[in-house]
C-alpha cells in the first residue's frame, strides 16, 4: 500500500504540490501516511530518541506546508520533503551536540559482507549460506515473524548504514536522490548500502538457522560443504530403503 502511494507521489509530484498549495487535506493525509514511518526512521538516525524524531518530522511538515510555494520542482516533491527532514534533523543533532552520522561513517566497521571465517584460503565457501525459507516473511521463528526480526536488525545497524538502507530499500529513492538528500558521495553510499544489506542478510540467516523449528536435541553442527542442499538430517534413513 505504502509503496503504491510512494510511487504515485513520484509520478504526480506536480499535482500534489499544487494540491498542497490549495490546502488539499486528502492529499496531505495521503503523503503524511505514505512517508511518515520512513521520515521517522530517517530522523532517528540523527537524533537521540523517538520522541525527538517525531518532533523533527512535525517540524518538517510545518516547513513543507508553509513553504510549499517555494518548492521549485527541480526534484520530486518526495525528495524535497526528505531533504527538508535531513536539514532539520542535522540542525537538531547539532543542538544536542550529537555527532552527525555521516561524519565518521567509513571507519565504523570494515568487515566483509560475510564473516571471513566462512571461506577457505582460496575464497571459496567452507561454511556456505545456511538455507532458510526466503519466500515466507511471515514465518515465525523464535516467537517473531521474520519481518519483525528484520525490523529489529535494521534498528541495530550503525546510523549511517540505516539511513542509506531506509532511503534506498525501504523508501525506494534512487542512488542519486539518496546521495543528494544525505549529502554523501556515490562511493560512500554504495559502501554503506552494501554493508547494511549484508548485515541484514546475515542476521536473518543466523536467526533462521539458530532458532529453527527443529526438534530440540537435533540441532546438529553447522551445515558443511558436503551436506548442504541435501535432505534435512532429521528425515529417517529408512525412507531411503523404501
Amino acid at each position: 500500500m505504502r509503496t503504491e502511494a510512494a510511487v504515485s507521489a513520484d509520478d504526480s509530484s506536480q499535482d500534489e504540490a499544487e494540491a498542497l498549495q490549495r490546502g488539499d487535506e486528502q492529499v496531505f493525509r495521503r503523503l503524511y501516511d505514505a512517508y511518515g514511518s520512513s521520515l521517522i526512521a530517517l530522523a532517528r538516525t540523527f537524533v537521540r530518541d523517538r520522541a525527538t524524531a517525531e518532533e523533527v518530522v512535525q517540524d518538517t511538515w510545518i516547513a513543507v506546508l508553509t513553504g510549499i510555494s517555494r518548492f521549485e520542482r527541480r526534484s520530486s516533491l518526495k525528495s524535497w520533503i526528505f531533504s527538508i527532514l535531513v536539514n532539520k534533523a542535522r540542525t537538531r543533532a547539532k543542538r544536542e551536540h550529537r555527532s552527525v552520522p555521516f561524519s565518521a561513517m567509513l571507519v565504523e566497521d570494515a568487515d566483509g559482507a560475510v564473516d571471513a571465517s566462512r571461506f577457505d584460503r582460496a575464497g571459496m565457501w567452507s561454511d556456505p549460506p545456511h538455507e532458510f525459507d526466503v519466500h515466507d516473511p511471515e514465518r515465525v521463528v523464535g516467537g517473531r515473524q521474520m519481518m519483525e526480526h528484520l525490523a529489529a536488525a535494521l534498528e541495530d545497524l550503525p546510523p549511517s548504514q540505516r539511513a542509506v538502507v531506509v532511503m534506498r530499500d525501504v523508501e525506494g529513492h534512487d542512488m542519486r536522490e539518496t546521495c543528494r538528500i544525505l549529502g554523501i558521495s556515490e562511493g560512500n553510499q554504495r559502501v554503506l548500502l552494501h554493508r547494511a544489506r549484508a548485515r541484514l542478510r546475515s542476521r536473518l540467516e543466523q536467526i533462521a538457522s539458530d532458532r529453527d523449528a527443529r526438534p530440540p536435541g537435533r540441532r546438529e553442527r553447522r551445515v558443511t560443504e558436503s551436506d548442504a542442499g541435501r535432505l534435512p538430517s532429521d528425515i529417517p534413513v529408512e525412507n531411503e530403503r523404501r
Binding site: H135, M146, M147, D169, E205
Partner: peptide, 25 residues
C-alpha cells in the same frame, strides 16, 4: 549453488525491506 543461495537470500532481504511496516507517527 552456495553463491546462488547467497544472492537469493540477499534479494529476498531487499524485497522484505521494501514491504517493511515501520512504526507510523
Amino acid at each position: 549453488r552456495h553463491c546462488t543461495r547467497y544472492v537469493e537470500q540477499l534479494k529476498a532481504t531487499i524485497a522484505m525491506l521494501r514491504d517493511l511496516r515501520l512504526e507510523q507517527p
